[in-house]
Amino acid sequence: MIEVQGLTKKYGELVAVRDLTFKVETGRIWGLLGPNAAGKTTTMRILTGYLPATAGRATVAGFDVFNEPDAVKKSIGYLPEVVPLYLDMTVSGYLGFVAEIKQVPAAKRKAAIARAVESAGLKDVSRRLIKNISRGFKQRVGIAQAMIHDPKVLVLDEPTIGLDPAQIREIRELIKGLRGEHTILLSTHILPEVTQVCDGVVIINEGRLMASGSLEDLAASFERKDGVILKLRRAGAEEAALFKGIPGVDRVSAEGNELRIEWGRGRDLHDDVARLALDRGLGLREMRSVASIEDLYMKIVSGGLEQ
């Protein structure tokens, strides 16, 4: 649905995006992940036709971004990093205006506004002025605006930035609810957003592609080990030795009251580890997977990994 090939964007001397190539399949939610100033916004602006690329090709919904900009603009809904709101308008007035300029036919406009208000959860505020609603609602208006013309593709630039944790969760649920009907590309610099919402990820840093693919594939290709982290009442050498005794476990390391237990990919020792902890009464507080994508991302961002 979205295909980017050799995309490059220069602002004078500064290269914001360098030879970027990736692909997002229909109906999936893909994350564009990278630290600040990695080129995420630039990439999205090129896809949505706001900026022209210096070199390379991009197609959205089968239309070329440079040669058929109007067709692309009709099939994309875009939430820019700064939500483009007219503060003196009411929520429904604003959505009506966006529906008009996105060329929703007059007969369908009312239904389109009602649908966007409904799915973005804006019912209670639809008659209020945008300047008087909370930050979280403004973000929702931004998302409603992006989907008003029922586009095939949604491009969301940092949809949860600046929100409080409850609002972040709401927006993520909202985005997850759109899966299937829409192909979504969302940018973020927070990894948990990707692991919680997305099916796949494109990781970029300093304008360069570092990795891309579905989450499982990436985990598999970059991490040959699987494992868990156990939080116990006490985690010392003694406890570590106990877990080392489980057949198949390669490595156990202790840090604070946490034990990191690793084994070769392909095995599933979760039950064995948990049973041991319970049988011995080690005071199990928490058990979580070794987040391999997190490790990967940290390596990429800190510059420890090329391609």
Binding site: R45, G49, K73, Y78, P80, V82, P84, V98, I101, K102
Partner: peptide, 9 residues
């Protein structure tokens, strides 16, 4: 808001 206008058809 110019970003909205210029990314609309």
């Amino acid at each position: 808001t110019d970003e909205l206008l210029y990314t609309s058809p």
